[in-house]
Each structure stands twice: as C-alpha cells, then as structure tokens.
C-alpha cells in the first residue's frame, strides 16, 4: 500500500459519513412530503433543491468540525463558505458519480438514480448544458481515477481559497492552501508517479468545477427569481450572500 501523508489521513477522517447524509436527507424529504400532501405533489426540481439544501447543511457541519477551519474566526469562516458553497455542492454530486455512479444516470444523495435522458427531456438550454459539462467533468475525473482520498483533499483545497477577499487571517488561509497542495501532490506522486502531469490535470478539473459552479449559481438564482426554489433555507441564504 502506498504511504499516505498524515494530512490526507486527517482529511479522510473529517469526511462526512455518506450513510448518515443519506438518512438525514431521506428523513427531510419525508417530512417535506407530509407537509406538501395538502398542497399536491412537489415538483422534482423542488425535491432536488431540498436535497441540495440538506447537503449544504452537511457541508457546513463538515467545515465547522474540520482541521484548520476550526482555527479561523467566524467572519473568515463565513467568507470562505460564501465563496465556495456551490463548488463544494457540485463536487459532492460529481464525486458520488465518479466513485459509485453508473453511466447514463445520476446517483442522488438518497441513493436513488435518475436517468440523464429523463433530465435532458425536461430541461431547458442552461440546465442541459450544465448537465452535459458536469458529465464531461465526471468522465475526466473517472479517467484520472480520482479516489476518495484525493476528493477529500480537493474539498479542502476549494474551501481554503486565498483569493477570497477581505479575509482577516489571509496568511493562515494561504499557508493551509500550500499544505493541502503539498499533501495532495505527495499523495498523487506516491500512488501514480508513472502518470506524468496527473496533479496538473486534477487542478485543471478544479478550475472547470469553479466555472460550472458559477453557471449553476446563476441558474439557481434565475429559478429563485421565478419562485421555483423553496424559500427560507440555507440554499437561498447562500444564493443571496454573493449578490
């Protein structure tokens, strides 16, 4: 077995339990369903928003209890999360497809599968393009054989972004970012030193993820303006934070 850097072990330890997230999300959907029974069947889009909202709760809890993040002041914690919530949300969806998904379908956090062709047939241009680019990214990460350890590192790389403006402790965030990159590089060299440039490819995938997340936020914001996103939740609060 390759030697795993201590930091990568720590990142893995911080990773939320997938089964717990699945149970929490299913419970939340059942509660919402009972509430909606009086108002008719909720749309698939509304259910997906609730899943995203529940995942956001788990992302915040992951960050709050994680190494390094705990050392930051509350204002810096909020700035970092406001800046990257949609990337972390997309990464959660994308990593699930890479690690456990099947071709042609979307594996949801609840363990259910949705046919991608079903989504395409109901989606407008923006969503179709988002799904397609998302699929391409899944494919790239699949070819790179990105594993659980690397996804755990990537999440921290996304969170500790020194480009976020007006951080009180910018230096700390910068030093953590450097440590994460170092740990990820060391890990990739141990596991796949024969694959030249794999680390650089991983970083390229990250910039594609960032660009996708901007599109996804714009899409959700439009849906919110047309009243299709359920109100009073974390998703809405995050959507408003940057605007």
């Amino acid at each position: 077995a390759p030697r795993m850097p201590q930091l990568v072990k720590e990142f893995l330890r911080c990773d939320p339990d997938e089964l717990q997230l699945r149970t929490q999300t299913t419970t939340r959907l059942l509660q919402e369903h009972a509430r909606w029974e009086k108002h008719g069947e909720p749309s698939t889009f509304r259910l997906l928003c609730l899943m995203a909202d529940q995942t956001l709760f788990s992302i915040v809890e992951w960050a709050r209890t994680s190494i390094f993040f705990k050392q930051l002041k509350l204002n810096d914690q909020m700035k970092l999360l406001h800046s990257c919530w949609s990337e972390l949300l997309l990464l959660d969806i994308i990593s699930r497809q890479v690690l456990c998904g099947k071709e042609g379908s979307l594996l949801l956090v609840t363990g259910q599968e949705m046919g991608l062709s079903d989504i395409d047939s109901h989606a407008g241009l923006t969503l179709t393009s988002l799904v397609q680019r998302g699929q391409e990214l899944v494919e790239k990460l699949h070819i790179l054989k990105v594993d659980r350890q690397e996804f755990a590192c990537i999440k921290f790389l996304i969170l500790f972004n020194p480009d976020v403006t007006l951080l009180e402790d910018h230096q700390f965030v910068e030093s953590v970012q450097a440590q994460i990159e170092g740990a990820l590089l060391e890990y990739t060299l141990c596991t796949s030193s024969h694959l030249l440039g794999r680390f650089a490819h991983l970083l390229l995938c990250l910039s594609e993820l960032r660009s996708l997340s901007t599109l996804a936020e714009d899409y959700l914001y439009c849906k919110h303006l047309s009243g299709e996103v359920p109100c009073n939740n974390l998703l809405i609060e995050m959507l408003h934070a940057k605007r």
Binding site: F57, V60, A63, R64, M78, N233, L234, M238, A241
Partner: peptide
C-alpha cells in the same frame, strides 16, 4: 448583513455543549 446570513452564522457558531 448580519441578519441576511443568520442561518449560516448560527450553524457555525452553535455551541455543541448546550
């Protein structure tokens, strides 16, 4: 602004010991 981000602030700042 404070009020706008009330939920995130609460989630990050909640006291686990209570």
């Amino acid at each position: 602004k404070k009020k706008d981000n009330a939920l995130l602030r609460y989630l990050l700042d909640k006291d686990d010991t209570v």
